[in-house]
Each structure stands twice: as structure tokens, then as C-alpha cells.
Design a protein around this nucleic acid. Sequence first.
RNA 1: GGCGCGGUACCCAAGUGGUAAGGGAGAGGUCUGCAAAACCUUUAUGCGGGAGUUCGAUUCUCCCCCGCGCCUCCA
Length: 496
Amino acid sequence: MPLSFFNTLSGKVEEFKPLEAGRVRMYTCGPTVYDYAHIGNFRTFVFQDILRRHLKYRGYQILHVMNVTDVDDKTIANSQAAGVPLREFTTRYIQAFQADRELLNLETPELVVRASDHIPDIVKVIQTLIEKGYAYASEGSYYFRVQKFSDYGKLSKLDFSGMRVGARVDADKYEKDSARDFALWKTAKPGEPAWDTPLGRGRPGWHIECSVMAMKYLGETFDIHSGGSDLIFPHHENEIAQSESATGKPFARYWLHSEHLIVNGEKMSKSAGSFYTLRDLVAKGYKPTAIRYLLASVPFRKPLNFTFDGLRQAEQSLDRLRNFLYRLSHEQFSPGENPQLAKHANETRAEFEAALDDNLNTAEALAAVFNLVRDANTAMDRGEFREGDKAFFANVLERWEEIFAVLKDDDYDKLRKGGYLQERHVAAPPLEPERNREGILQLGTLSDEQIEDSIREREQARRQADYARADRIRQELLEAGILLEDTKGGTRWKRK
RNA sequence: GGCGCGGUACCCAAGUGGUAAGGGAGAGGUCUGCAAAACCUUUAUGCGGGAGUUCGAUUCUCCCCCGCGCCUCCA
């Protein structure tokens, strides 16, 4: 099957063919930076990351633009509440967002652009819309006249003919000719940030920034646009209306939307205590790579029910893969090659590639690799694995990792460098008094040297057949979050 | 009410008109000083419910039930 995606616009899985051979122009809706992003947001961002990684894997050169909404009602309200100027306030959250992205191994798009840096571009497009009769002014604000755009509703499949106006009454309703019209430009309100422009003093509406920035960097027609399913209406519908009215050309060709993450079967909510940021989960001791694994493991078109049990399962699954990787790199095998294994390795690569081509079926891509791992482990246990097979397996896993980016166990280093571990000085469970006094057995605080010292101590005890002491050391380390495994090649340790 | 996404074993989850991938968890076993890891065996005559089409449906059609989302704040 050729590379195919479910396109919201057509409602079908379609073969993907970019406008320009070998090149993909892609726009993704990024965060509104009024607070830390939550794991529901990251579900979408992980999906977008898998998307861009797979496109790269398939040899496309990518130009990926992600916006940051840094001027809207929420950013203004929160910055004012914090007593910090808007620009400074949003910059803080952009930095926090980038730090979270790095923890989750999300690649940085070629361009990350801020709405507030594009005011003149926005004004120009609004002026075009006014000239073409799609926009009108009212009390200092400008609105898009939805009725003028006959294709309105083609993305969301909403039928507006004869539909009564929704129960929710917008504050701007009486300024608009029609309740469905939406703001392109909002006139300045006292005390709010505003720009002096030919349109008057004010700020952009929400939707226009994406139309403007996407077209500025990607052209009037580009390949892929994506975001969470809640953006289909009104945000993306309005982007299409504005952009296509301004240019007379199709806007984005493929629209990809990820389904939402829910928590314990319900929408995340602060009042229900089910609202989690990445930091919240890290503070609870979960690894970012396990979180990425969980978010990536469910195909993007399926709602993902987040539970802590599910997160623990993800950790276990990931450990299985990492354990195999460890065996692969640390065990010695007899010389030669096992042709059957090499064949299986190559087949596995074809399988996970085909799975991803099929609308990014990550679950199937995972299954292919687990099947290979099981068979390789079996071969290793039976002595049928050969030194020459290593390369095939390493290659398959490396290729797989280009997409999933979860195998490298560098969470601890990244968390420490990012200052995340400061929140993790949790008191260790009861331990031997003299060790506890040293203060070195707190969770996540043992250095590699300290761990290796303890392991040497235990090795000595084992040689002397003092298993009680050896087991005690192992238990202490375990309580400090360090797991030991005695392998043929010596004792291996890892951070739980 | 309209539109959309789902409902597969204890949990997560793939998938197909021809008889259910994979992961986690549990149980038994092998290995190990013991663990851990790994391996082997085992856990859905069943795929929300009902009717229909068919030689045959979990997979197609219709109706119904349930969960989630959207219907101008929302990834």
C-alpha cells in the first residue's frame, strides 16, 4: 500500500501525493501559550511528530511550520493576572513548551512562528478580504462574512442551511451581520495589548494568524495541515474560508486530525483532578519516554484513554524492548549468520514501514517489532543467534527508532539537566539507618558512581557467598529506584 | 437534535467476508544462590445488542444501546 492518510476533507483514506515531488509542506497548529501544555495537547503533538518523522523516513524533504498563539483572550487574561507583560509572559510558556517537547523527543519544526510577529502580514490579508467583499467593519472590528463563502462547512461537514443559531450567545453577536461571522480583527479594548495598523488599533482574531502564517511560509496551497479534532470546527473551517476567499485557490490539501485523549473515560478536567501536564507526570516519577510510547502506541484516529495503569503498561512494554537491545549489544554469540533471522529482521522492517504507510498504524508497527524481539530472544536462548545477525537487528531497531524515538533511556539525564528532578526529592522508603543518613538513597538522586560502588560491594559479597548482604544491597538500590540484573556479562543496572 | 470517532479477552490494542496480531497483567514450567531478564505453556467458538444479506460475518446492510468529542474558548 502506498503512503496514505485519512483526509478529513474527503472523509476517506487517500494516497498521499505532495504538490512537489519529494517535498512536503506541512503546517500544524501549535499551542496557545497561556499555561503549560497538558498531555492531551501532547497526544496531538506526538502524532504530528510521528507524521513528520515518517515523511522524512520515506525520503521527503520537509518544511514544517508550527504556530504559537501568543495573543488571544487567554494569554492576555493570564498575563494580566500574573502582572507580566504579554510578550514576556508568553515567551516563558514557549520556553516551557520547548523544554517539554525535548523531553518527549519531539523534533523541532523547521519554523516555529508567533502570531504577534506577523501583524503586518495579517493586516494585509484582512485588507485583501475587505477588497474582495468577504470582510466588513463593525464598531472598529472586522468580520468575515461566512455567507459569501459557499464552501463553508466542507471540512467539518456541518450543514448550516436552516440551522438555528446555537444557544451560546457570543458577546460580539450584535456587532456582526450574522451570528456565524467570525472576527478577523478585534478593536482595542482599554488596558489590552494592541497594534496601530491601517485597520485601526487592535489585535488579530484567532483564526487569521494560521491562514496568514501558513500561506506566508508554505505558499497559498500546501500539502498537509493538522491539529486536534476539536479544531476542525470552527478553527480550520474558518482558516479555509479566509484563505480560499483571499486567494481563490485551495488551501491545505490533506487535513489530518487526531482524536482526543481522555482520562479515565472522561474529558480532562481541573475540577475532577484529572488534568495533567507533562511536569505533573514527571513529578509522579513517570518517564517521558514511557509517556511518549503510550501516546504513540494508539493510532491517532482513535480516542486514547489515559490511565496510570496504561502508563505503567507502557513502561513495561518499553522495558521489554530495551532489555532486548541490551542483550543485543552486550551478549556474545557464536560467529556466523543465521539466514532465517536476517530474513525475519528484513521482513519486520517491511512490516512496520507498511503499517506506518497505512495511515500511521503505530499499533501494528509496534506488533511487528515485538514479534521480531520474541523470536530473536528465543534464538538467543537456544544458541541459534549468531554474531553476524546483530547488524540486521541493530539496523531494524535503528530504523524503527527513527519514528518512535523511545528506546534510548536518557530520561534521567534529561530530567536532571532540565531541572525537573528538583521536585523529586521524595523520602525513600525505610532503609538501614546508616545508609539513609548518608542521604544518598533518595529517589532519583543516586549518582552513577554511587550505584556502581554499591554493585561492586555486592559483587564482593556474592563471591564470598554472603547472599544475605548481597540481597540487602540489591533491595536498597531497588528502593532507591535502581534495578539490578545479574547477567552472564556481569551485573546490569537501570533506573526504574 | 445534527455531525464525527469509538465499543474486540482482566487491562491496552491490531485486524480481516473464511474462521481472532501484539503488549501488559495472572497461572504453571525452564534457567538462576535467590531475584530480575529471557524462553515455553496457558487465559475470547468470541469481536456492544438484535435482525438481515451470504455457503460462511467480528468484518457488509439496517435498527437499537453505551462512551467520547464537536455544533463558534478548547490539541
